[in-house]
Design a protein around this nucleic acid. Sequence first.
DNA 1: CGGTGTGAATGCTTTCACAGCC
DNA 2: GGCTGTGAAAGCATTCACACCG
Lengths: 206, 206
Amino acid sequence: MAIIPEPTRRRLVQIAHLLSHQKSTRITSMNIESLTGWSSSLIRKDISMIHYNGGVSNGYDVKDLRRAICEALNIAQTIEQGVNCCIVGLGKLGAALLENSIFTGTPFKLVAGFDTNVNRTEILSAPFPLYAASKMESVIPELGIAYAILTVADDNAQRMANILVSSNIKGIVNYTGEILSVPQGVVVENVSPITAMNNLSAMLAE
Amino acid sequence: MAIIPEPTRRRLVQIAHLLSHQKSTRITSMNIESLTGWSSSLIRKDISMIHYNGGVSNGYDVKDLRRAICEALNIAQTIEQGVNCCIVGLGKLGAALLENSIFTGTPFKLVAGFDTNVNRTEILSAPFPLYAASKMESVIPELGIAYAILTVADDNAQRMANILVSSNIKGIVNYTGEILSVPQGVVVENVSPITAMNNLSAMLAE
DNA sequence: CGGTGTGAATGCTTTCACAGCC
DNA sequence: GGCTGTGAAAGCATTCACACCG
């Protein structure tokens, strides 16, 4: 498969998600345009990047298009096997995410939580084990954990990220306000409320 | 001020944030490169977009550069006046964010919370008032709320977004898995853990 | 020197426009 | 007729390379 440019990939991920919530059985690029704001030709181009070629004059088959996108992005495999994830930092935010229901219907499975404060790991309960942060480097490879959700305090973020990296993590969803330095090959997705708000400000100021 | 392209704006927001946490008093574009992974020439180009011209052969003055970026992005004004924000949806995640400490040291101020379930607004306590969701259209303009954090259940997301839009909200930080349809002029920042995870998958699959 | 600031060149993304197909 | 799929054109963003400056 030819390489798919990052902007296209990100849109396809969204489109796939949107398709899974779709009521009707067929959808056109214009429908998707009005749902997402991206131009219909851009959407057609994106779809052409994965060589789908299943569109006809009344659009695409919702289910089939979704399947094709997932396959092309290699999230099909992900979907079948599931991906093991963990939460690092069990403060209020981390604890809120413990609720495993958050990932039901997705391929992501929470299988462990970590906190430096052993109190937290004892007080809280979750449908999977909670460990002291010192256990990360052994537990993460053992359970085959690929992704981590980082919800520690900002001043602890880089230190924990370093441990995650040396535990061989593949990706980090970063809820802290810090920008993490990680080696090539590890992917970080920044979702801190503060960064998000700052982005809003910068977008809205022309 | 000439318009600043979106990718540049997003990087500058991050750089400004990073500068505020900086110990040393001077910094070079190479320093920022090793901190962020963006190339030093890109960083210089970004800075040149705001016509800063304050750099010398030992780099930039950290404080002054930060000030200049904030000014150029119109987040200076934001910083002085603060921006009023609200949380819509007081489930576990929303409740975790109520902790106002999350925005201390930032220009963002939480001034209201909303939930359709009046129980939640009564049970929970916060350093600002919590209202029934039916009050949104009156309270939001009244308090001059510009940004909303959306933490409702997915199947309620678009409905709440519609109400936010008709309450004249400027920006939405979207923690739900839904893609929101909003009119031009309203900005959405998607930070759902599921979207973030999906993006990780798509990035890591070449 | 060591680093900035910036035109020019390169390399991506998006839009356009239209042939082709159901 | 309506919509897809896709070269070709246009529009952006990033890197290069080098003049310039403390």
